[in-house]
């Protein structure tokens, strides 16, 4: 066992592009669930339309890169409206049901054999990120001593953390305003808000769109840093991991998803590296009947599932949160 190596991998991953994808997805869920109380269990669907919006526009329709970026946002916006219209007047579980169902359906459509010419089937699409790569101003990677990033990852994390900063700024500015106050009130009791003359449906829709578009941005960034979109990447596990990241850092706080995403990804990468080491080589530490190397990568999902349950039960306010402020414990 090489603990230093595990620590290095974990730290590198925690600040790296993949963590950023989860942070962005979790910021969107924070707008939905944390501030407004909307249960969006289909963030992976928003991410998928964000990613495919770019890829399909550039690869299949031969559009420009920037048009593709615009299409990503429009696609996420349209998805939010389609999901919100039938559900936002109903009890909270309907939105959850429709979003999780839609995200799975989208994954089926994007991966389907029959629509291979449009979405690339199960192999997905590649070859849309040239403009993004050419924008890379760095000539070389960076070596921070303990961790280092290659040239394109350096560009990815520059762009990624900038996007995170912008999203956090927007969320902060909105949530301190009277608009944010209406959202937090809806989370507590939407009938009370309605009785005071607020159009609850419109506010929920605005929140769904905002969080969904941040989700689309997460998908867009995912597509850029990966340089390929593959349908299986956008399964429900993605959504559930983002929820866990949010709950680790604390819902309804601007920096909650950022802190949570980094911590979660640090722990999961560390765990993955640990079990990876324990199952690799000709004479692995763990016997293969107990765990082989493909099983070792599953430990992160098992642990995340458990963590999500335990957090929700014992610390719904997150690791650093104040229980009085969080509205999701009682009802």
């Amino acid at each position: 066992m090489d603990f230093l190596e595990i620590l290095r991998t974990a730290l590198q991953q925690a600040l790296g592009p993949t963590a950023i994808v989860y942070v962005l997805a979790a910021i969107g869920i924070n707008v939905h669930f944390g501030y407004t109380g909307l249960l969006n269990f289909g963030q992976s669907g928003f991410m998928a339309v964000g990613a495919y919006g770019l890829a399909v526009t550039v690869v299949i329709l031969d559009g420009s890169f920037w048009l593709g970026v615009a299409v990503s946002f429009v696609a996420a916006l349209a998805l939010a409206i389609v999901l919100g219209l039938p559900t936002l007047r109903l009890r909270a579980d309907y939105l959850a049901i429709v979003t999780i169902a839609t995200s799975e359906a989208l994954r089926l459509v994007f991966g389907s054999v029959e629509m291979k010419d449009t979405f690339g089937g199960s192999n997905g699409l590649t070859g849309y990120s040239k403009v993004y790569k050419d924008l890379n101003p760095y000539s070389d990677g960076i070596d921070l001593g303990f961790i280092s990033y290659r040239r394109d990852d350096l560009w990815n994390i520059t762009v990624g953390w900038s996007l995170v900063a912008i999203c956090c700024l927007v969320v902060w500015a909105l949530m301190r305003s009277p608009w944010g106050r209406v959202l937090r009130s809806i989370r507590e009791d939407e009938d009370a808000v309605r009785s005071l003359g607020k159009n609850v449906f419109a506010y929920k829709m605005q929140a769904l769109i905002l969080g969904g578009m941040i989700g689309g941005l997460a998908g867009l960034f995912f597509a850029l840093k990966q340089a390929s979109v593959v349908p299986t990447d956008y399964n429900t596990n993605l959504t559930f991991l983002a929820y866990t990241a949010l709950l680790v850092g604390g819902a309804a706080r601007v920096l909650g998803p950022v802190v949570g995403g980094v911590i979660l990804w640090f722990l999961l990468s560390g765990l993955g590296a640990t079990f990876g080491q324990m199952t690799s080589g000709p004479d692995p530490i763990l016997p293969t009947w107990l765990m082989d190397s493909s099983q070792s990568s599953l430990t992160r999902f098992i642990v995340t599932g458990l963590a999500l349950m335990l957090l929700m039960i014992f610390r719904p306010q997150g690791i650093f949160g104040d229980r009085r402020e969080i509205a999701i414990d009682g009802r």
Binding site: L39, A92, F240, M312, D329, R331
Partner: peptide
């Protein structure tokens, strides 16, 4: 006295946990 919304979140955690155990 855990609320229904919280229980639904617990249930997605449980889903992820079980599905991964099955895959494992």
């Amino acid at each position: 006295g855990t609320g229904l919304i919280a229980m639904m979140i617990v249930s997605i955690g449980f889903a992820l946990f079980l599905r991964s155990i099955f895959q494992y």
